[in-house]
Design a protein around this nucleic acid. Sequence first.
RNA 1: GGCCUGUUCGUCUAGUGGUUAGGACACAAGGUUUUCAACCUUGCAACAGGAGUUCGAUUCUCCUACAGGCUACCA
Length: 498
Amino acid sequence: MNNKISDNNIRVRFAPSPTGFLHIGSARTALFNWLYARKTGGSLIVRIEDTDIKRHQEEAIDLIMQSLKWLGMEWDEGPGTGGDFGPYRQSERLDIYTENAHRLIEEKKAYICFCSPGDLAKERELCQKNGKAFKYDRKCLSLPQEEISERKDRGEPYAIRLLVPENKVLEFDDIVYGKISVNSNTIEDYIIIRSNGLPTYNYSVAVDDALMKITHIIRGEDHLSNTPKQLLVYNAMEIAPPEFIHLPMILGSDGHKLSKRHGSISIEAYREEGFLPGAIVNYIALLGWAYDEKTTIFSLPDLISKFSLENINKKSSRFDYQKLLWMNGNYIRELDESTLEELIIKEVSAYLDSEKDLKRFQDGPDIGETIKKITPHIKERVKTVKESSEWISPFFTIIEYDPDMRDYFNNKALDAVSVLNKIISTLEPLRSRFLSSDIESSLRDLSEELGLNLRKIAEVIRIAIWGKKVSPPLFVTMEILGHDLTINRIRDYLKIIT
RNA sequence: GGCCUGUUCGUCUAGUGGUUAGGACACAAGGUUUUCAACCUUGCAACAGGAGUUCGAUUCUCCUACAGGCUACCA
């Protein structure tokens, strides 16, 4: 995809399992891998871990890669991209796993197991009841060779287990979490190849990382406890393990695992909600990483130049939608006008098409033109692109006055009817020059004449022409609406309140 | 249950053996203002608890509590 800047051999990988959309947590993992690769001039490998047939969804692969690209990340090797260490889908590497497993059997580092999952589950349950830790009892380790051959020939299903050495200290130095050491006795002879021939995660991941010459494994903290098991595979294969960098988890606002009940968790959903990729990247970069004591806004190039593994922290963080919103508002304000216009045009057009309840004008104002005019005035008022529809749609639709807007002025010491009539006569002469500056000065004059402050006058007009208590800046709004529509809406409103 | 990990304002975080423990979001008040925002000012608010080491611990060690992860023929 792109030529390596320098051949320093740093190789990192992002290895999603295609079970759905790319979600927040995986996106952060991908981001840190990508940043590290770009920072060091190394390579980012994308590998699809699709060995779970039940949960596998073919479409998810594309969805995930689309989201990565949308966020601004590209990779150097992967499915569809190619590379010297492929294939990059585990489902296409099955032979590699079984070949290696059989070699391990020959080397007495693994063995065949005929125990049925059902029996094992029963035993496990029993242990749990008695409060004891279950560990596979190696029943099949001592099976005579003839029996193994015989049962295999009979077609009896079997799995392959890794022979875990006894009482060995498994140690690694995680760049984030420091020295981690576990006694091998706490690990059972876990299955590396299931009876259906497919490898299990802890085995295939280690085989692939080893064979793909991954030098730095950057992944979620949920894999910290799995690492010793994978170390066992490296040891068995006699390959030196890579560096490990575990990232603190991203939790929901209540401190529990991020899930749908916390709101949107997929990057795709945030895209649809009108979030900008830069804002999302900026926000998730700050979950578990900080550059200094004050900087919060980072462009992609900033992140690349400032990122370092040493600044990753250990504490899991909670996803704060409010802060993401704030961040997004920030990015919207910083966006150049024409890009923002395009986004808003797309959003508003889709909105007008999809909302069947809206009554659109037959030959209403031009969407593109209108949005160009109003964008500078709403860009600092919206936090997502999606919100722009609410601010803009009354330009193109017949407004409905809901009941509390109808009698809004009833209990106010303000004669709305007479004020509105005066406003009409003030505005009518402006027909040929219906510009916000002229509108404003005429209304200021009127305000003085009536001894009524501009705020009140604006309030009446706003409700009459917009049907809401909140609108984009009023005089510009009137200008864009145009003389006739403005006057007509005021007249309509008058009819309703008299 | 066993194993592994973590704990600074409500949230994201900075930080150090001696600091008025800093910033950001959120919240509150004020300013600006045609509404709402944006913007500016100010405020609120934290070192989980207990022992120890030390002249001195938020910082180092241990224990407890709480939280998270792994403990599958899921990844």
